[in-house]
Design a protein around this nucleic acid. Structure first.
Lengths: 134, 134
DNA sequence: TACTTAAATTATATCAAATATAATTTAACA
DNA sequence: TGTTAAATTATATTTGATATAATTTAAGTA
């Protein structure tokens, strides 16, 4: 949490609550999920505060915005290199670490593009959904 | 285009215009871009028709919905296996074919997930944007 | 060729996610 | 303790996407 101190951002109780919620969080929450969680502590909590804080953290490189979900943005406080798998039935997003994959950094050379990062989306069925009918 | 005939969908002039716009299209257009293009021919064209047709084509597996752009959905009529690179400055999306990459199908085994497909998003700078200042 | 009908189109309304505005409050620092 | 830039808040607005219901039409059938 004290890495937040070094960012130059103001340490408001609301932001600390958001940081606390995000710290170690593996659920890839949307803005609404963050809002709901933090609203429990701050009844006056505003959506704008969530978006402001997300924006500030994004600029500082402390969270990543995920585009894996077509319905809404999701956020990931784990900024180490990893990938994601989303269940095509329930939408749950889980992490895929690079050492779970027998895969080298793809040696890609693409005309006219300077590659800076890459991310794999896996799609499939989680155990719960695979068990279910239909 | 005649593969469309086999889908059982009604061949309306509006749909044919959308199909014609999408055929061979490598620009990964959004619904709005499709709407704008087709509106030139059909002044009464409705957004709902674009979304209806997109939905019908998605169900038939004739286009893919891309989640690479955080602002909106984009659509890709190229349903062969390939990946994408998006310019972090201008947002342009280009194709990355698998034989441009020295990469095997990742041998991934993920606890509790049955993997059905995967897609790589590359992020970087296109030539035009790399040249520019800032 | 005309008739019938399910499907598609359209204008419009609505929804949901995200962002903008402006007044008020507050953390951080002198 | 006072000052101020930054953050919070309620609210309004924007944007992308979807839903509704009346109208039109493609496509099969008589």
């Amino acid at each position: 949490m004290h890495k937040y101190r070094e960012t130059g951002l103001k340490l408001t109780p609301q932001r600390l609550a958001i940081l606390d919620y995000l710290d170690g969080n593996k659920s890839h929450p949307s803005a609404e999920e963050i809002f709901k969680a933090v609203s429990k502590r701050f009844s006056t909590m505003s959506f704008a505060t969530v978006y402001n804080t997300i924006e500030a953290l994004k600029k500082k490189g402390m969270i990543f915005e995920l585009t894996i979900d077509p319905y809404k943005k999701r956020f990931d406080p784990d900024t180490t290199s990893h990938h994601h798998i989303i269940c095509i039935r329930c939408g749950k997003v889980s992490d895929v670490s690079e050492n779970q994959m027998k895969l080298n950094m793809p040696k890609v050379s693409i005309r006219d593009f300077k590659i800076m990062s890459w991310h794999i989306d896996f799609h499939g069925l989680c155990r719960e959904c695979e068990g279910k009918e239909n």
